[in-house]
Design a protein around this nucleic acid. Structure first.
Length: 720
DNA sequence: GTACTCGTCATTTTT
DNA sequence: TGACGAGTAC
């Protein structure tokens, strides 16, 4: 076996720890894989190794990821490593896999065969609809809060009847949760969290089904394990059972999603629950230069409760990290653009340069600077393809035809494009449906309209329209069906009428192409099933537009969305206390540690060059704010940093903004935004003032002593 | 049914 | 500052 091992090309060049992980026996394992340490490679090589050595067959492997992108990447790598048929292998996201289990066992899961998936938007509108029909005040019970409540409880495995409530308000919300469950059941739809919970319950309540899968999946592998939620962990435990092994890869230092239910503690629980004696640590980094890694290590070292890990590289020190303190957000952006122009001139592609920020609002100023310099760029985040209104509208026709109980879909298109059905008519339909405890579609059929349907208007016309489309698309491919829907529904005409809607029409064509691609890659023959699967696909796959990714453009994104990516040069911007760490995170339990992990993720994205930038003043929510430098900057050893502007004398620089020309007085040279030094309170920033000359009092925000008012006459201030 | 105004509220996000 | 939703006016 040894000789054969070394002949396997996918095992070549693995370091000691990597190959130890890849070639582990049939035992559960936790691989602590630092940023850039070859995590995905280990995971895929492990699968290839298991199969190649006939320890297991592809059909016994279940691999779970968090995103479709990661799942695809994994599949791609495995097929390039091994010339095998991977069809029996289950590789997918938690949601995708749960969907698959539920489809197969829809009866045992008490779901209709045609059940559809609600995305977050759909879920919110379902909740709003429910609340309106039961006359619940949206002021007292904001639908978003209700949505959060429902999801948070589902994510820890709680149904409404199991939720403990201690006050009237929460009880009421929980009552909405109960009714929401009923409504979804009646309409035959499941939300994202429901996919997981329902699947968990399926396994829990049906021993034969559980045993069947436990017998089948001998090797369960999990990517980004630090991001698993409580329910996901319980699901894994159930499926692994007593006899199978779990191979989890993760990095506790990169856990940045606790706000949506991720539980790092699952890593410790895994060791305990599966008797893992030795955690394999992958600490050699193949991405970044040493100065960058040292900064990352220094930052993350300030966190308690780590599993412990120190990245190193053989790649050399590289450049120093560059730090720039801008006078304003505007100045900061200009510095970034100037620097990027130079990098580009020296031969770096734009798409190898990333500008990262903590919150989306920060991108605007930067975008402005980019646009005025005519540099191509791409902002990540925002609306995804299948979330666009025109796409959802077209799909809603398809959904309603597939499942007449889908009231969400019904309401979306009953009067879109407008066909003279107003709020009153819809109310009447809702009344009829409620009386008969039936779907809105049935209510519409029952509806006796005074208007004729010759004018292409009114409810009977709508009912006819749906029936006609249904007949017409019978037996057609999905793409043909969509084409007919876009035409017959009037969507095409509607969007043709308005000039601003060229993009929308283009997107609808794109939807048709997406359907063609889907059908080509699908191995399902039955058209009805295929249609249902396509609809699922559109809910589960957000459809990040890949088309423009080849284009050489600057990459702008939040630190969160940068996780898993790498760039030659990275600018981490807005490094100010209040922004990064974000002020709202400080109130949360372990909030600062999570922010620090965020900073760690950001730093470790950089391969060659890292820039840290901040601004002394910044426009936020329509007000100029004066933030102190981020505390994380102080955590990086000085010798790793090269300050580009030796803290400019703020007064000497002509200011681009009016507010900064407000000198406090003739006697003192400080202005709002100046850094000062106080003998007792240390470093601070001038944030306001009142009075004049001898009476002058100034407000100072100190790094460690809060905000204070001081009389200029007595305070012994000096410039910092 | 649409076009406007006004008030409110501003982390991070995949499925 | 500016995006979005609700409410109002036509």
């Amino acid at each position: 076996m040894q000789t054969e091992l070394s002949s396997l090309h996918f095992l070549n060049d693995l370091n000691k720890e990597q190959s130890e992980a890849v070639t582990l026996n049939d035992q559960s394992a936790l691989i602590l894989a630092g940023a850039g340490s070859g995590k995905t490679r280990v995971l895929t090589s492990r699968i290839s190794w298991l199969i190649h050595n006939q320890i297991t067959s592809p059909g016994s492997i279940l691999a779970v990821t968090f995103t479709n992108k990661a799942a695809k990447e994994m599949m791609l790598r495995i097929t390039s490593q091994l010339p095998i048929n991977t069809r029996g292998m289950w590789v997918g996201t938690f949601h995708g896999l749960c969907n698959r289990f539920l489809r197969t066992h829809h009866q045992d899961a008490h779901l209709p065969e045609t059940f559809q998936i609600l995305d977050s938007q759909d879920q919110l509108s379902a909740i709003k609809r429910l609340m309106r029909s039961s006359n619940i005040d949206e002021e007292n019970f904001p639908p978003r809060e209700v949505q959060y409540f429902i999801n948070a409880n589902k994510e820890i495995g709680l149904r409404s009847q199991n939720v403990k409530t201690y006050d009237a308000h929460t009880s009421k919300i929980n009552e909405i949760y109960l009714n929401y469950e009923k409504q979804c059941q009646k309409e035959g739809v499941v939300d994202f969290a429901e996919l997981l919970l329902r699947c968990y319950e399926l396994f829990k309540k049906n021993q034969p089904i559980l045993e069947h899968y436990q017998d089948r999946f001998k090797h369960i592998l999990i990517d980004e394990f630090q991001d698993t939620s409580e329910l996901q962990y319980k699901w894994i435990k159930l499926l692994v059972g007593q006899n199978n092994s779990v191979f989890a890869v993760g990095d506790d230092d990169q856990s940045i999603y606790s706000f949506r239910g991720a539980r790092v503690s699952n890593m410790k629980d895994l060791q305990k629950d599966f008797h893992i004696k030795k955690v394999i640590k992958l600490e050699q980094n193949y991405r970044s230069k040493n100065n960058i890694l040292n900064a990352a290590n220094a930052i993350i070292n300030n966190n308690d409760n780590r599993l412990g890990k120190k990245l190193w590289t053989a790649a050399g020190d590289g450049d120093l990290i560059r730090k720039y303190v801008g006078l304003s957000d505007y100045d900061e952006s200009n510095f970034i653009i100037d620097e990027i122009k130079q990098l580009h001139r020296s031969g770096l592609n734009y798409n190898q340069i990333a500008i990262l920020y903590r919150s989306n609002a920060q991108s605007r100023v930067i975008e402005h600077a980019i646009v005025s310099n005519n540099i191509p760029y791409r902002v990540f985040g925002g609306l995804r393809f299948f979330e666009r209104a025109e796409i959802k509208n077209a799909l809603a026709y398809l959904r309603l035809i597939t499942n007449k109980s889908d009231d969400n879909a019904f309401l979306r298109i009953i009067n879109f494009p407008t066909r003279g059905i107003g709020a009153k008519s819809i109310e009447q339909i809702q009344d009829i449906s409620k009386k008969n405890n039936a779907s809105l579609w049935h209510g519409a059929i029952e509806f006796k309209s005074p208007t004729s349907n010759t004018q292409k208007k009114g409810i009977p016309y709508f009912v006819d329209l749906i029936k006609t489309i249904e007949d017409e698309i019978h037996g057609l491919t999905i793409s043909e069906s969509i084409e007919i829907i876009i035409e017959r529904s009037g969507l095409k005409n509607h969007y043709l009428k308005e000039k601003d809607n060229i993009d929308r029409l283009a997107n609808l064509s794109e939807l048709i192409s997406a359907a063609v691609t889907f059908t080509e890659t699908s191995d399902v023959e039955e058209p009805t099933i295929n249609l249902i699967e396509f609809l699922n696909y559109t809910s589960l796959e957000s459809g990040e537009l890949q088309a423009s990714s080849n284009e050489d453009a600057l990459q702008l994104m939040t630190i969160h969305s940068a996780k898993g990516l790498e760039f030659d040069a990275v600018f981490i911007t807005g490094l100010e206390d209040g922004l990064c760490p974000h002020e709202q995170s400080l109130a949360e339990q372990n909030g600062l540690e999570e922010e620090r992990r965020l900073m760690y993720v950001a730093v470790t994205r950089a391969k060659m060059k890292l820039y840290l930038t901040l601004a002394q003043s910044r426009m936020l929510h329509g007000q100029t704010r004066y933030n102190l430098p981020s505390r994380f900057l102080d955590e990086i050893p000085d010798e790793l940093i090269k300050a580009i502007n030796t803290t400019k004398k703020i007064d000497l620089i002509p200011s681009p903004r009016k507010t900064q020309t407000n000198y406090l007085s003739d006697k003192y040279t400080w202005k709002i935004g100046s850094s000062i030094q106080h003998p007792k309170f240390g470093q601070g920033i001038v944030t306001g003032y009142e009075g004049h000359e001898d009476d002058l009092r100034i407000q100072i925000k100190f790094a460690n002593h809060g905000t204070k008012w001081l009389a200029m006459e007595y305070a012994k201030l000096s410039e910092a």
